[in-house]
Amino acid sequence: MKEERVRARRLLTVVPVVLLALAGPSGAAAAAPAPASPDAALDQSIAPDQPISPEPAVLSAGHVDIGPRYVDDQWTLLIHDDAVEAVWRDPDRTVLRVTDAAIQPVPDDPAYEFLGVAAGTPVHVVPQVQHPEVVWVGWNTQDPRVMRTIDRGVTLELAGVEGPGTVTMYVQSGTFSEPQVLWRSTEPPGQPMWVEVNTHTHANWVFTAPGVYLVAVRVSATLVSGEQVTATRHLRFAVGDATSSDAALAVVPPTVPAPSSSEAAATSAEEADGNTATWLVAALAVTAVGLTVALLVVLLRGRAARRSAERQRELT
């Protein structure tokens, strides 16, 4: 039984270059350290002049990332596609097609109970390590202008899911490590994930039923200027060979509510904490300098008083 579980676990296990935790610089969304075995396929850089394709596209294989980008000076989220040539694509005109080549059975292992379906159930898995017949979906914060303007990193959130089944995203470091869940459509929207600047990574995306899925993703950041920026876009997944890509392109995304003031405050908490710590250190330094100067003044005045008293005694 143990050997069967190990074999099953290998079906859904991959080794990432960058893992992400569910807690951050302030405990809300921090990046975990990179594992010891990096994948050369994740070593990439993005040129500043890469175009945004105006054409609709169906991507069923190859490497794609979601990531922040400026369009007409407006902060947004696009799909970076370098399966053939490197271009950015509009999520509203792009279908991520997950073919039946992605089908895997859920392992008979309690570690995968978070998927919410019984062991042995066939599910579609976009893997964390590239499969040549399955679209490989990750994320990056590597657009040159984005790297120049954001302060430390961005927050990615699952803002909502529409589809016939559930969607779960998780990472796993090595065959015997426990899965680390990042997003679950069965939980309330949000689930913030902190992504450092110049990050490129991938995860496992699990779809429990074939059909069209709209996955709303929100990307937020504090710029070096102090400005807060946010954008929400829908990723269109056509899961299963029988699912129409045209239907995925035609569906109208639902309206996603803007984050409440409390959610916005929580999203930027890690950045605020970092700035508060910086100012606290600076204030303590200034206070220490002030105390040192005051002490020197007291000492000098004491010396002057003693010398004056000695001169008075000599004169008398």
Rank of each mutant, 00 (worst) to 15 (best):
M1T: 08
R5Y: 00
R7N: 05
A8T: 01
R9Q: 05
R10Y: 00
T13D: 07
T13L: 00
V15L: 11
P16V: 00
V18L: 06
L20Q: 14
L22I: 01
S26Q: 10
A28F: 09
A30P: 03
A36L: 13
S37G: 04
S37Y: 10
Q44P: 00
A47I: 00
Q50M: 07
I52H: 08
E55M: 05
E55D: 15
S60N: 08
G62N: 10
V64R: 12
G67S: 07
W75M: 03
H80Q: 11
D82F: 15
D82M: 10
T94Q: 08
R97A: 11
V98E: 09
T99W: 03
I103T: 12
P107Y: 09
D108R: 14
D109A: 09
E113I: 00
G120D: 01
P122A: 01
V123P: 04
V123K: 11
V129C: 02
E133P: 00
V135K: 13
V137P: 08
W139G: 08
T141F: 03
T141Y: 03
D143C: 10
R145S: 00
M147C: 03
D151C: 02
D151R: 15
R152A: 03
A159Y: 06
V161F: 03
E162A: 10
G165Q: 03
T166Q: 14
E178F: 07
P179C: 04
P179E: 05
L182Q: 14
T186F: 04
E187G: 02
P188M: 01
P192T: 05
W194A: 05
V197G: 12
T199Y: 05
T199E: 07
H202S: 02
A203G: 12
G211I: 02
G211K: 10
Y213R: 05
A216E: 04
A216H: 15
S220L: 08
T230E: 13
L235T: 12
V239Q: 10
A242N: 12
D246E: 15
A247W: 11
A250L: 11
V256G: 04
S260R: 13
S261E: 15
A264D: 13
A266Y: 11
E271H: 15
A277V: 02
T278E: 11
W279Y: 11
T287E: 02
T292K: 04
A294S: 10
V297W: 15
R301A: 01
G302S: 15
R303G: 06
S308Y: 08
E310V: 09
Q312W: 09
R313N: 02
